[in-house]
Simulated scan of single mutants.
Amino acid sequence: MDGRRLGWRAAYELLALRVRRPEWAFMNYGYASDDAPALALSPDEEPDRLCINLYERTLAGADLRGRDVLEVGSGRGGGSAYVARHHGSRSVVGLDFSAAAVDLSRRHRRAPGLSFVRGDAQVMPFADASFDVVLNVESSHCYPSFAAFAGEVARVLRPGGTFLLADFRPADAVPTLLADLRASGLVLEAHDDVTPQVVEALRRDDDRKRALIGAWLPRFTHPLMRRFAAVEGSRGFAAFASGRTTYVVARLRKPVHA
């Protein structure tokens, strides 16, 4: 695993171990657009509206009603819980590599049909054809082999099932990402560059993220976590704003007949 992936994984694990408070439910960069739906959120969900917007953008075009859903890289569980509460799924399973994150999610996230499992995205602990929908939001950049992950997604999806992806890559690595998706045997139905909307969300959410880092994390971790959160002035934010890093959402389908 290269240094950049190790850095991301260290940041995720630090949050899981150091911030045991359930209020920090989402870790994605968010999505802000004038045409984003006016979601009806509870008071507990409202602070995370921009992060929830990114889930809604990723889910666009997919019907989760009555479906069995897997979120790979469920983190602190906020996204899986939101999907289970708002999208009428039969079940939602959140899978994460971090035992601390899974433990936090099991203790604090409640919704009908919701559960959390510890496991590796590249060797998922599920039988073939277990899920109708696989969701992966801002997690795959940490995986040693995206191609291996995409192959696992294809394995655990049922025929006709949907894979929904949201993540970022260096701009010159996006063609490789799309090639790996196509090589998985899934049909790439749609993909979009949503970097401008992510940058706008980062700007709007900057004060809140700085406050959370300052209040809940030790001072020595602040430089790493400001970069991790892509606050304004960090290298992470500059990479998005300059176009060096691209944020992609994609929807794929598993063929009914292989």
Rank of each mutant, 00 (worst) to 15 (best):
R219P: 02
D35R: 08
K209M: 10
A258L: 07
R158F: 07
V156R: 10
A179I: 01
V199M: 08
I213Q: 03
N53M: 12
R227P: 00
V137P: 02
S91R: 14
L202Q: 02
A147N: 09
S89T: 14
R235L: 12
V174W: 01
S33A: 15
L59V: 03
F126S: 07
D120S: 12
R5Q: 15
P175L: 12
V248D: 06
G233T: 05
L164D: 01
L39H: 03
A229M: 12
G113Y: 04
H257M: 11
G214W: 04
H257N: 12
R244Y: 02
S42A: 14
Q122I: 09
E23P: 04
G73S: 03
P218Y: 04
M225L: 14
Y143V: 11
L165F: 15
S145M: 09
R226W: 13
R49S: 06
G236K: 10
D207E: 15
T195L: 07
P175E: 13
G113E: 03
A147D: 09
A154I: 02
R182E: 15
L17M: 11
A173Y: 07
N53R: 15
L104R: 11
G3H: 11
S42K: 09
F168Q: 10
D68W: 06
F240C: 02
T246K: 12
A101G: 10
A25M: 10
